[in-house]
């Protein structure tokens, strides 16, 4: 399938799943999975870095519209989009011969898990910190970050593993 089309479809699917389903999931008030970042994680490997940053900012802004927040998701997504190429350079050796969407088959399971885990944690730290807006209740924010990161990661890696079969 056309790489543009497949990414647009993935964008719509990720955002609508997040908005309609996962945003309503709030386990004990601390744990909400943010799986829409799978769209940003899976963007084509050869995407220019400036474009990736802009796509990240735009995606975050769209989520902000749906979550009635400004800048919260945007800051987290910009951070994620900035870190992703650096992590790919770090964990994937022969990056130059690869092209197309990032997935397990392309870059290998271990590098994929590393990249996804770090990006998820980075996104969640940024998002929950900006959202809380202050250092008070920092322990609650920390619990939210840890619980939500674990759940988000499990859902996303589970989906990617199932998709592979």
């Amino acid at each position: 399938m056309n790489i543009w089309l497949s990414n647009i479809i993935r964008f719509v699917l990720c955002i609508s799943l997040q908005v309609l389903l996962f945003n309503n999931l709030n386990i004990y008030g601390i744990c909400t999975p943010y799986i829409y970042i799978l769209f940003l994680v899976s963007l084509p490997i050869e995407l220019p870095r400036w474009a990736e940053l802009l796509i990240g900012a735009a995606t975050g802004l769209v989520m902000d519209v749906f979550c009635s927040s400004i800048g919260v998701h945007m800051s987290a997504c910009v951070l994620l989009s900035y870190l992703r190429p650096l992590l790919i350079n770090l964990f994937v050796q022969d990056k130059e011969r690869l092209s197309g969407d990032v997935d397990i088959d392309k870059i290998g399971l271990q590098p994929y898990i590393n990249i996804l885990a770090i990006l998820t944690v980075a996104h969640h730290i940024m998002m929950f910190t900006v959202e809380s807006g202050s250092a008070s209740m920092w322990w609650l924010t920390l619990i939210r970050i840890v619980a939500s990161s674990i759940l988000s990661f499990v859902i996303m890696i589970g989906y990617e593993l199932l998709r592979r079969r």
Binding site: L53, G60, G71, M74, S75, V130
Partner: peptide, 10 residues
């Protein structure tokens, strides 16, 4: 971009 979003958020 990060500064912009943080300004927006704060």
């Amino acid at each position: 971009l990060e500064t912009l979003s943080l300004i927006l958020a704060v």
